[in-house]
Amino acid sequence: MSLRDHLRGIWAIVEKDMRTYYLKPPAVSWGVVFPVAWILAFYLRNPGDFVGLLPGLVTMTALFSSTAAEAVVINFELRLGSLERLLLAPIGPGTVFLAKVLGGAFFGLLMSGTVLLFTITTMPVSANARVFPVLFLSLLAFASLGAMLCILVREVFEAQTLLNLPRFVMVFLSGVVYPISAMPTPLRVLARFFPLTYSVEGLQAGLSLSQPNTYSLDLLALSGFTVAFLLIGMRRFSARFK
């Protein structure tokens, strides 16, 4: 089986998931409306430096939108049995898992890209080329984290609940609203275990809000998370059909 077969299979799955689940009100509202409302609520509570919240806004959108419908595309389809269709196709479970991850990342790109575009056109920030690698890698890391968690459980609601855990823990501890530098040392150490921390840090550099001192490290960390989540997820996914 050639690479082309895999790519064609992946694209067919991504496109179908987009059409059937992602580009629908629930995913859009969870993926964008919620992060925007959250950041606005936070700002209205503590009016001050709104520009400082922008990297958090974009990365939070990336996190929430890339994982918005994963419980549906994985657990719901597993329940209905339609996921079996994909497993019976001549592409292997690993590719199916990858397609689900890429679907999430693609939707995340549409949503966070829109927010980013809106941000740089209306706010006093200037984006530089560093924005793109960090955004892409963040989306991949979040989408593979989400897919990996989904595959650990069976039911849709279990997956949704499980996904909320890292979402909210990271929103509080990864510097989205509270700067990490202002946190006590144990939390600062803890923050280093979350991919969102590196996304926020990288995007600060990408929006020219900070010096890109740690930028390469951020990219490296995000790549590491992506690979680890993907490998674990693919393995778990394949093991499910033994």
């Binding site: 064609r8 067919a12 179908k16 059409r19 059937t20 049995g81 269709r85 001549p90």
Partner: peptide, 27 residues
Amino acid sequence: GVVPEQSNVYEELTVIENLLFMGRLYG
């Protein structure tokens, strides 16, 4: 070709879209 015990077509897709999707999946 495999017809599973439970009819597992995609509920959201139309009849023709279901068929076309399978066609794409199999190249």
